[in-house]
Design a protein around this nucleic acid. Structure first.
Lengths: 342, 342
DNA sequence: CTGTTAGCGCTTTCAA
DNA sequence: TTGAAAGCGCTAACAG
């Protein structure tokens, strides 16, 4: 039996002594046992279990040319199911290749993101997958900062950086969703979105605007509210929109956080009979980006711009794997499709 | 300016050469600059920025007595908001102390969990926070396997292991919730839970049973369905329960995954008019463990056994921090309160 | 197939 | 306050 929580941690040398071979033989066995006589392999493996030996991955990885098997994942907030799914997708692809995930939440804070990236680089991650908090001043993701470590951007892009990127096709999604409302005859469609500097928000707002232009309509800036990061902020914003002299007759919600707030506000207003109704043909229809669990049972009519965040994570993982396998092609830019769910 | 994605990675020695000091002085500066003349500190710091030097944390941590600053977090599934919140709580507490999280999802699979733990140990994490997939055969968490690495169990306990543990007060929560239904006159209350071997499920089933006994009632085994891990399985189970010759008049759902399925099944049955109604005084009331976003807007009357998974994560993080600061007191066992949300 | 030597990047002595 | 030497646990490169 093993010694348990005893004195010193077992090293390669302990195993070598126990098995009566050289440290190098143990090293070879641990690396896969190629070019070692079977008898010795067995002896070493026996010693390994007896002593409870575990190779020190950190010591191994300081040798030049050796990988850490670590990938840094910087997301904004796992509590948002969108990013939780993304994380899961990344793990699904990278875990199969025996990579482990170092995960950090930036909370949409550029400073925190920079810290995380710097720290991950110091830990010699083999690659990084980042959902950038903001669009600008992303020096911390440039080659000066990360060296040769491959970086994949997920969900959002960064303006001046030529990096592998996986995005949702935000523009098309938002355009389709908005057109859907316009086709129903709506002319005053509110837009609620997250931080103005996030590329997702900009792209979705772009799609919203284009759909208007496509139909020969103008956008009323009074109906556009961005910067809501939490549902309560969106709820507040939606209430304010309803107070306008000429309130919106339909709503476009730019992400799942805003959607929650919008639903609450409309539901409350409906209960107070402040607006025509939340049901029936007078209801204010809502089109929202991101699907969510039980969305179909909401008391408000929702049209969802659906997409697959887990798949986005998988794609990001795969792009990174390609780089780790030596792919030096120019940066690739993927756009994942959306689907309108009525 | 720095050289960017150039040849070799900058080391301590490069900085030393550039600053005209010994490597040791650089090391001291990087460690906080105590006992180094200010002038040299400045020279070193200048060289550091010029060269873009980052200390190699892995190399540093192989020296005996040095920490890696890494904590392994093994959860079952981040896509479940319960565990996403837990992860966030852990990061909140540990991140402040400059620890980083190595996160892995076991997907309720003991083998995967063992792999992750073994791997994390090999990476010399300073501690582990684990949501154990199952209750039994947890040798991989015992001292023989993890050595002196402190382990904190979160959300679920493991029978024979005397480890720091943070749990929800499942028994009381389930008991209160079930009593609530009994007090409304219900005598046939269905129970839907996750894997039978998970301690949470066992404790919640225990609370359910106790509430019955408290009221002098017997539990009908035909109304108890465990093993549903996904909403569709729970939905199926709920539909089957409704087909019973003597179907339940109320439902206890043991976690948020089952709740989703229960809601769907009841909603469908209500729409088909297979059951009296989903609304009004004939409705089948549902009590469910775990709150979720927009639960109050569901088309089914829900009573929620609420608790705070993020706080659970925080507590787990704090217990671990205590151990990392040398606390050798006997294992502590925390139980976090629940609140019935009607 | 196996072992020896050297050294990865860093920090703990210990001496100056 | 500073530096030189030694070595953490591991593996590439080279013998044998």
């Amino acid at each position: 039996m093993t010694k348990g929580a005893s004195a010193r941690v077992v090293t390669l040398y302990d195993v070598a002594t126990r098995a009566g071979v050289s440290p190098m033989t143990v090293s070879r066995v641990m690396a896969g046992g190629k070019n070692v006589r079977q008898e010795k392999v067995d002896r070493v493996l026996a010693a390994v279990t007896e002593l409870g030996y575990r190779r020190n991955e950190n010591a191994r990885s300081i040798r030049p040319g050796q990988r850490t098997g670590l990938v840094g994942v910087v997301i904004t907030n796992v509590a948002n199911p969108y990013y939780a799914e993304l994380q899961l997708g990344v793990e699904e692809v990278l875990g199969t290749e025996r990579f482990r995930l170092l995960v950090g939440n930036s909370n949409e804070d550029l400073g925190k993101e920079q810290q995380l990236v710097a720290d991950f680089i110091g830990r010699k991650v083999d690659g990084l997958i980042v959902v950038p908090a903001t669009d600008a001043s992303a020096g911390h993701l440039g080659p000066d900062a990360v060296g040769a470590t491959p970086v994949v951007l997920a969900s959002r892009s960064v303006g001046d950086l030529d990096l592998d990127t996986v995005l949702i096709d935000d523009v098309t999604g938002a355009r389709d969703g908005t057109r859907h409302l316009i086709e129903q005859g709506h002319r005053r469609i509110a837009y609620l979105g997250s931080v103005a500097s996030a590329s997702t928000n900009r792209r979705r707002l772009d799609g919203y605007t284009r759909a208007h232009h496509d139909a020969g309509l103008d956008v009323d800036p009074a109906l556009i509210r961005t910067g809501q990061q939490r549902p309560d902020q969106a709820r507040q914003a939606m209430h304010e929109l309803l107070q306008l002299p000429s309130p919106p007759t339909a709503v476009f919600s730019g992400n799942n956080r805003n959607t929650v707030g919008v639903i609450r506000a409309l539901h409350e207003a409906g209960a107070d009979a402040k607006i025509p109704s939340t049901q029936g043909k007078d209801a204010i229809p809502v089109v929202c980006f991101d699907n969510f669990e039980l969305s179909d049972l909401m008391p408000i009519p929702l049209t969802i711009i659906q997409h697959d965040p887990r798949d986005l994570g998988r794609h990001a993982g795969r792009l990174l794997l390609d780089r780790l396998q030596g792919d030096t092609a120019p940066a690739r830019r993927l756009q994942l499709p959306t689907r309108l769910l009525t």
